[in-house]
């Protein structure tokens, strides 16, 4: 437990100090989105990495959060913080309700059902022009405010988003190390065995699904207020897949792994930009190589790699001596 605390403190310190390096740079803006992606990836990881339930429709909850906050605070002039809270609760409730029938399914069937849910929500965003603004998007969403502080610059948004991320990581790490977290992993490994041991698998699965959806909805609300604009393509199927990739690349069942996955997948395209038209090919290739050689994700792959390299050096040093 103490180890966890140190890990968290180091993580928080890095996040807090990062602006000293990147401030005034456009990477500050990218890091805001890394934060939002981290929240989404952590949320999906709770469901997929810990409880072992796949979802190909998580962009839907992200979108519901974004549109919900945007519409309530712009069209209906709600206080943005109130809107954010209400939307998170409603989305959580919704996920809880659909969780019961959906999570009875397993494997490919669960993937299909969540995929369908994602597509339905996307179509609603796209076609309900009167409310969502349809394909050309919904604009004019206000920035969040806290007393005299208006979150309207990249630096302010960075601290806004990352304070939510830190909260969400703390919650997730605690949850993962609790009795409930162990129950999740039991369900992941063998659902029947878990039930025999007295774990209420059905209810727990639905609860983690709802929690995951709620975190996504909050991330969506933040996205809406940071961007001040939302459009349907930001919540489509490809985003759900991207989230899944972040979780898998980062490392299933590791909260910090999700952060690494989100960081890598959001930042990498920026650094590959010098390759112009070939960046997509390289990006795809790199992902393939990583999944082949780091099946445990970055969070386990990087230490392994490090050990291999240092081990190699030691051997070389021995030969010379």
């Amino acid at each position: 437990m103490k180890k966890e605390l140190i890990k968290y403190a180091v993580f928080a310190l890095c996040i807090l100090l990062a602006p000293l390096v990147f401030s005034g740079n456009y990477l500050m803006n990218v890091l805001v989105f890394v934060g939002i992606h981290t929240m989404l990836a952590v949320a999906l990881n709770l469901l997929l990495g810990y409880a072992g339930q796949i979802s190909l429709g998580h962009a839907a909850f992200f979108g519901l959060g974004a549109y919900g906050s945007g519409i309530l605070s712009t069209t209906y002039n709600w206080n943005p913080w109130l809107a954010m809270t209400v939307v998170a609760l409603v989305v959580g409730g919704l996920a809880f309700a659909i969780g019961f029938p959906i999570l009875k399914l397993k494997g490919h069937y669960l993937a299909m059902a969540t995929l369908g849910m994602g597509i339905i929500v996307y179509i609603v965003f796209n076609e309900w022009v009167a409310i969502t603004g349809g394909p050309s998007g919904f604009s004019g969403i206000p920035n969040l405010e806290l007393g005299p502080l208006v979150f309207d610059s990249d630096l302010k948004n960075y601290y806004l988003v990352w304070s939510f991320v830190l909260g969400c990581v703390l919650l997730s790490v605690n949850l993962a190390n609790s009795r409930i977290g162990r129950a999740f992993r039991a369900i992941h490994d063998a659902e029947v065995a878990a039930r025999v041991m007295g774990v209420n698998a059905r209810l727990l699965k639905v609860q983690v699904f709802a929690l995951s959806a709620m975190i996504c909805a909050i991330a969506g609300s933040l996205y809406a207020h940071v961007m001040t604009f939302v459009a349907p393509p930001s919540f489509g199927f490809n985003i759900s897949v991207e989230l899944l990739t972040m979780v898998v690349i980062g490392g299933l069942g590791s909260i910090y792994g999700s952060f690494l996955g989100a960081l890598l997948l959001t930042l990498l395209p920026e650094f590959l930009r010098f390759m112009h038209d070939y960046d997509i090919v390289f990006y795809g290739g790199l992902l393939m190589v990583m999944t082949i050689f780091m099946p445990g994700g970055l969070v386990r792959g990087i230490p392994d790699l490090f050990r291999k390299i240092t081990g190699l050096k030691n051997k070389k040093g021995g030969a010379h001596a």
């Binding site: 961007m227 393509p233 930001s234």
Partner: peptide, 8 residues
């Protein structure tokens, strides 16, 4: 064609 990317 992505709004987030356009902002970045």
């Amino acid at each position: 064609g992505d709004a987030t990317k356009a902002v970045q």
